[in-house]
Design a protein around this nucleic acid. Structure first.
Length: 156
DNA sequence: GCCAACGTTGGC
DNA sequence: GCCAACGTTGGC
């Protein structure tokens, strides 16, 4: 099982939305590194931290579970979508999506400012200057530390 | 709202 | 295939 961190602006899609809906298609990623993570590394059962970006405060707000393998993101073919990509060939879709399921909301937000104070979390992409990937891997040790911050066991 | 960082695009 | 211009991300 792999661990991930996935960012969303809560004004666009928040953990409240995911908690209400249960399962959601994580669509609209238009970055090749993220596309390759989806294609090559995402597995059903992987866990992901839900991170609110451009938020007050920005930080980790809960966890979700990957419940599908990657599949072509339908929004790339939808002219009405903000994510429409007219250059993506239908036969070889350029962009992928995965389905995620709500697992838990943390009892409190873990703000980015707090993550920055923990030396063992210094390698996380989310604390690194200029790191803008919306999906990035998290190590088991980082996951353990983050869960401990909110009183959860390392395994669940 | 500002702006640094960096991925992507496109001219050549 | 280089690289400048442009657009986007996202913290502050």
């Amino acid at each position: 099982m792999k661990y991930w961190l996935m960012k969303s602006e809560p004004d666009t899609y928040s953990i409240d939305d995911l908690e209400r809906e249960g399962v959601n298609m994580w669509e609209g990623c238009r970055n090749y590194t993220v596309r390759n993570f989806f294609r090559d590394q995402f597995q059903i059962g992987d866990r992901a931290l839900f991170y609110h970006s451009n938020a007050e405060p920005s930080g980790i707000v809960g966890e979700m579970e990957v419940v599908s393998l990657a599949y072509p993101d339908p929004t790339q073919f939808d002219p009405a979508s903000d994510y429409f990509d007219p250059k993506s060939p239908r036969e070889i879709p350029r962009w992928l999506a995965v389905d995620v399921r709500f697992r838990r909301r943390y009892p409190r937000i873990i703000p980015l400012a707090e993550i920055r104070t923990i030396p063992e979390l210094g390698a996380m992409g989310v604390v690194q200057r200029g790191q803008r990937l919306s999906v990035m891997p998290v190590t088991p040790e980082e996951m353990r530390i983050i869960r401990a911050l909110v009183g959860l066991p390392a395994e669940d």
